[in-house]
Design a protein around this nucleic acid. Sequence first.
DNA 1: CAGGGCTGTAACATACCTGTAACAAACCTT
DNA 2: AAGGTTTGTTACAGGTATGTTACAGCCCTG
Lengths: 253, 253
Amino acid sequence: MSEQDQSRKTPAEASLERNRWSRPPRVLIVEDERAIAELIRYNLNKNGYQCQVAEDGEEALLAVEELAPDLIILDWMLPEVSGIEVCRRLRARPQTRSVPIIMVTARSEEADMLRGFREGADDYMRKPFSLNELNARVDAALRRTRVTHQAHLLEVGDLVLDSEALTVSRAGKRLHLAPTEFRLLQALMLTPGRVLSRDSLLSQVWGLDSDVEARTVDVHVRRLRKALNGEGGLSMPDYIRTVRGVGYCIEAA
Amino acid sequence: MSEQDQSRKTPAEASLERNRWSRPPRVLIVEDERAIAELIRYNLNKNGYQCQVAEDGEEALLAVEELAPDLIILDWMLPEVSGIEVCRRLRARPQTRSVPIIMVTARSEEADMLRGFREGADDYMRKPFSLNELNARVDAALRRTRVTHQAHLLEVGDLVLDSEALTVSRAGKRLHLAPTEFRLLQALMLTPGRVLSRDSLLSQVWGLDSDVEARTVDVHVRRLRKALNGEGGLSMPDYIRTVRGVGYCIEAA
DNA sequence: CAGGGCTGTAACATACCTGTAACAAACCTT
DNA sequence: AAGGTTTGTTACAGGTATGTTACAGCCCTG
């Protein structure tokens, strides 16, 4: 269930949306009451998440290693190691420092909640809680990590363009592109498989009010190809397809 | 340290006293009820945040441009443009897509809350709410984006910046940086891998209302590189990447 | 008050990028 | 197969962005 954004999304963004999570997000539920754990698990499963349950703190810490979850739902009251202690330990490890943690607890004192946040929780919900609300908060937390980590990645084959770091790499190797080349590639990669006319590229890359000749696009495509495929031997496959009489298009061979 | 005179310490900045180098996080409060807005503002100020208030949706959208806030507290019910609409528009713009938004509203229906999350809110609080809780949630949201004054250790490669001790070291060896160089490095290291424009750096390092020329950034980058990589031979790899036509970015090679 | 460090600006040097023209090659039409 | 059209390729002149250096003013320290 690709959650909320049924409203405003260009097809390009929608395809991005799919690319970002090629796998279902993994959620670790740490909760000693079986019934509650199952309820949450059922609910999250229904929304496309892959869940695992841990019933005490020790188990939770182990499960984090194995599962490498994208998000953790953490009950405060647990046998063995308490939830708050689990939280603290996860925050102490660099590897798990940035995994979102939603604390869920029957403790209603404000002081407890503040403590939870202080120990590094990302969100805090009091029991009893609405499953819909939990869902919404899970979505929000994951959306956030998506936005900060990979929202700006465009991929075609072994080509990756990062529009935030403004970098392009092919097969893991960083490439150097001139500004115009970068924008041109970006325009192409926004709609992989779709043919873009020279005029369309001109307006996207050079701006709507540019007086640049259409042929200039060709020259830049040439430069871009050179940069992507390697100068001389063109040892790598060319992702940029020329569509005679129309324009260009990028696609994974 | 020209800091001392330029920072007229409101009593609220007491907690930041020892930390003159780190820029206080900027929070935009969007709330049409003056009394509530002031309450929130006072409370956040006390905790070392720099606040600005917008009283309606239009004003909010403008303020976002100017202030470039690190976090937004957004009331649902607003004159002109509603909070939910503001939220949607901010999420539609790439530049503001990742700014944390905490929705604060008197609407208690679950459906409203779900809608808030669906439009991209990061957190949702029902009025009336505890100021302590608001504080904790603001802290949590900013901790995630690492723009908080609490994350005082920044690392990139073998570079370590301690914004509390005000020290920088490379490969364990302590370096000497001038104040401006320090703040510049800090701004870069807050978002490693992300390209920062000269304008953005100017507002972060020199302040929003400075009339310093953009080229000045280049000169300081030069000085910073010298300090980081070693005066002459540049024996160490350069973590600062120049992005032609845009600005600079720090990354671990 | 003298000196040293820090800062912002100007000026120069350099590296890089860019659009166009001109020619070559490929393609399509007839 | 010829002729016209579209695209590939190359070279280049000019422009722009950045690197680098020098310097004058400022503030603080001693």
